[in-house]
Amino acid sequence: MLYKLNLEHVLFLDIETAPQHPDFANLDATVQELWTQKTQYQRKDEFTPEEFYERAGIWAEFGKIVCISVGYFVLKGDTRNFRVTSFYGTEEELLKSFKSLLLEHFNQTKHLLCAHNGKEFDFPYIARRMIINGINLPYKLDLFGKKPWEVPHLDTMELWKFGDYKHFTSLKLLAQVLGVPSPKEDMDGSMVRDVFYLEKDIDRIVSYCELDVITTAQVLLRLRNEVLLTDSEIKHI
Rank of each mutant, 00 (worst) to 15 (best):
L5F: 07
N6H: 12
L7P: 05
D14A: 10
D14N: 13
E16C: 06
T17F: 01
P19R: 03
Q20N: 09
P22E: 13
P22H: 06
N26D: 15
D28F: 02
A29G: 01
A29S: 15
W35V: 01
Q37F: 05
K38Y: 09
R43D: 11
R43M: 14
K44T: 08
E54F: 06
R55E: 09
G57R: 01
I58D: 03
A60E: 10
G63P: 06
G63T: 02
K64Y: 02
I65M: 00
I68C: 00
S69A: 11
S69D: 02
V70G: 00
F73P: 01
V74P: 01
K76N: 12
T79R: 11
R80A: 01
F82P: 00
R83K: 11
T85I: 08
S86W: 07
Y88E: 12
E92S: 14
K99Q: 14
L103V: 05
E104T: 13
H105C: 09
H105E: 15
H111G: 09
L112K: 15
A115L: 07
H116D: 12
H116C: 13
N117M: 07
K119A: 09
K119N: 13
D122C: 01
P124V: 04
I126K: 01
A127R: 10
A127S: 15
M130P: 07
I132V: 13
G134C: 11
N136M: 01
N136Q: 09
L137D: 12
L137E: 08
K140F: 02
V151W: 04
P152R: 06
P152H: 11
L154V: 03
L154F: 13
T156D: 12
T156I: 12
T156G: 12
M157H: 11
W160E: 12
W160G: 06
K161C: 13
G163Q: 14
F168V: 05
L173M: 14
L174K: 06
V177M: 12
L178T: 09
V180W: 03
P181T: 08
K184Q: 13
K184L: 10
E185Y: 01
E185V: 11
D186C: 04
D186L: 04
D186K: 12
D188H: 13
S190K: 15
S190Q: 15
M191A: 10
V195N: 04
F196L: 15
Y197N: 02
Y197F: 13
L198Q: 15
L198A: 12
E199Q: 13
E199G: 00
K200C: 02
D201F: 02
I202R: 05
D203G: 05
R204Q: 03
S207T: 12
C209D: 07
E210S: 11
L211N: 10
D212T: 04
D212F: 05
T215E: 03
T215R: 03
Q218P: 04
L221H: 10
L221A: 07
E226M: 14
E226T: 01
L228P: 05
S232H: 07
S232T: 09
K235Y: 05
I237W: 12
